[in-house]
Design a protein around this nucleic acid. Structure first.
Length: 557
RNA sequence: UGUCCUGUGGUGUAAUUGGCAACACGUCUGACUCUGGAUCAGAAGAGUCCAGGUUCGAGCCCUGGCAGGACAACCA
């Protein structure tokens, strides 16, 4: 896909022109391992790794693991898997904020010695109240004037674990009257007596994110710290820390961009975690989840996610992207690569009354009309078939082109058939169709050149394999589930987001398919094989339906 | 009564030094088609948040408004 430069690229190019960092470009993707990555992170990953690729630079993967209470190894593993799946690699540059705990601690001690940090032993409420509000200045803590020696001693005791959680914090001494809340003597270290996923029980105190992030960037030689808009107001604080640290004119440049919002979805790890924990979905990788692992299981390809990221662009405008753009991106890619296959989701039996009993023949079908190199395959035809229930109407409206009593249609790659009889049960439900076929139309064309208005898909009843197919719809039925003041986002959960069809019949060529293999079920949509699928119990997920002007017409009526 | 950020078709992004507001998705036509898919051709849809100003000329520069968002976790 053609990549056009976004505003961050332009700023980087300007830095390059000015000869900053002697032409070096180094970015990083810094997730907190407290949940699975989602499509919004994909945007950031594509941006950061993309910048490195574009300018011949490097991109680090760094886990921001400064809060042992929320972080787990499971998340670390999933994040690495997802970044790789998207097609990016951090080489030997895998880092953790926890790699810098010693340096950070030393830096804190240095700040104390310089009189720029102090231990506060007031409770959280009091400290919070003293901070003021965005429109009112804060006032100074009585601990602010504590002598350096005492601060050093207290911080040492904090480090040694002599104090309980929450009893003491270390604060930077900046300006309680600053119009920027983040400069009002921010807390930089707090006591958390929890075991850390990497450092174990070595530490009782942990740096705050704000005290770690900028310094990690600095120590890693990051030239461009790309992050989301909400950190814009933190930038002066990060700069303040770097001011205390820097020994040359090198300083990472932070550039903020707008996080991704998608219609009909929620995009915060906290809420996604709630959906998982409360059982509204079946785990982080439920195909209805906007997580990278969910999209993967749903059948999205890495290419389609990357193309989507490219297409939406990068700006500072906090907007909302239409999911239809994401869906367009998968269809676009899958159309090129997915093998075509015939499958009947809601089967209706058809008997070809003039076809010999017990006979079977092989017909040739094209695997992908978009790509001749994908070749052809044989599909078996016989007297008893299944077609899609939706492809027959006993009393069709004007614009319905498919099968109806007395009407002739083409069975794809096979024959022209005409419906001669509709069989019903006592309840008046259609159970079976009788048709006749035209032997001269073998392969799908009639020698006399007569036309049919529709081609429908089918499978041979005797040859088809049974499969379970899961149809997914959007998880929420409101465009902006979290955008309503007094209504919880769960209220907008779509009760029909998952439809399980257990009696589907697919042509046998899919039997050996492996999990994650993509298919187009002709005329229906793109489907992929689920992780839980086996040769005996085939299981497909619908990635996205095909564009469908007939259903659009129907719904519009 | 703050600080910072952002306002361009329905949505998302472009517009070089100030020079006919462009592209994609979506929508609607039509062509073609053994997928009501894909493809191809075309159409509608904004005068750039508002008001002034500078200029031959402003989406872009200046002034003043308005609207939306972020910031008051010992979260990141």
């Amino acid at each position: 896909m053609a990549k056009r430069p976004n505003f961050i690229h332009l700023q980087i190019e300007q830095d390059l022109e000015e000869g900053k960092n002697s032409g070096r470009i180094h970015t990083r993707f810094p997730p907190e391992p407290n949940g699975y990555l989602h499509i919004g992170h994909a945007k950031s990953i594509c941006l950061n790794f993309g910048i490195a690729e574009k300018y011949g630079g490097k991109c680090n993967l760094r886990f921001d693991d400064t809060n042992p209470a929320k972080e787990e190894t499971e998340y670390v593993d999933s994040i690495m898997e997802d970044v790789h799946w998207l097609g990016f690699d951090w080489g030997d540059r895998l880092y953790y904020a926890s790699d810098y705990f010693d340096k950070l601690h030393q830096f804190a001690v240095d700040l104390i010695k310089k009189g720029k940090a102090y231990v506060d032993d007031q409770d959280a409420d009091t400290i919070s109240r003293q901070k003021g509000t965005p429109t009112r200045p804060g006032f100074e803590s009585p601990c602010r004037m504590r002598p350096v020696e005492e601060n050093l001693r207290l911080f040492e005791k904090m480090t040694a674990g002599d104090f309980p959680d929450g009893s003491h914090v270390l604060r930077a001494k900046i300006d309680m009257a600053s119009p920027n809340m983040h400069m009002r003597d921010p807390i930089i270290y707090r006591i958390i007596k929890a075991s850390h996923h990497r450092t174990g029980d070595k530490w009782c105190i942990y740096p705050m994110y704000d005290f770690a992030h900028g310094q990690c960037d600095y120590w890693e030689g990051i030239t461009h710290s790309v992050c989301t808009l909400e950190f814009e107001v933190h930038r002066p604080l990060y700069d303040w820390f770097i001011d205390q640290l820097m020994d040359s004119d090198y300083r990472p440049r932070q550039i903020e961009f707008a996080r991704l919002n998608l219609t009909y979805t929620v995009m915060s790890k906290r809420r996604l975690l709630e959906l998982v924990k409360e059982g509204y979905v079946n785990g982080w990788d439920d195909p209805r989840m906007p997580t990278i692992s969910g999209l993967r299981r749903r059948g999205y390809s890495p290419e389609s996610v990357r193309n989507f990221s490219e297409r939406i662009g990068v700006t500072k405008v906090d907007g909302m992207i239409d999911v239809s753009l994401l869906e367009y991106s998968v269809r676009e890619h899958l159309n090129k690569i997915a093998k075509r296959v015939m499958g009947v989701l809601n089967p209706l039996k058809v008997v070809i009354t003039n076809y010999p009993v017990g006979e079977t023949e092989e017909l040739e079908a094209i695997n992908n009309p978009e790509d001749p190199l994908m070749g052809t395959r044989k599909v078996s035809f016989s007297r008893e078939l299944y077609i899609e229930r939706d492809d027959f109407m006993e009393d069709p409206p004007r614009k319905f082109f498919r099968l109806a009593p007395g009407r002739e249609v083409r069975l794809r790659y096979a024959y022209f058939v005409t419906c001669t009889e509709v069989i019903k049960n006592e309840k008046g439900e259609i159970t079976e169709l009788h048709c006749t076929y035209d032997p001269a139309s073998r392969g799908g064309n009639s020698p006399d050149g007569r036309k049919v208005k529709a081609t429908i898909h089918w499978v041979s009843a005797a040859h088809a394999v049974k499969a379970e197919v899961r149809l997914y719809d959007r998880l929420f039925n409101d465009e902006n589930p979290t955008g309503h003041k007094d209504i919880d986002f769960r209220q907008f959960l779509n009760p029909e987001s998952l439809t399980v069809l257990k009696e589907c019949f697919i042509e046998p060529s899919v039997r050996k398919a492996k999990p994650l293999d993509h298919f187009q079920f002709e005329r229906l949509g793109y489907f992929n094989v689920d992780y839980d699928s086996t040769e005996e119990n085939l299981l497909f997920n619908r990635t996205v339906p095909l564009r469908d002007s007939w259903s659009k017409f129907q719904n519009g009526k």
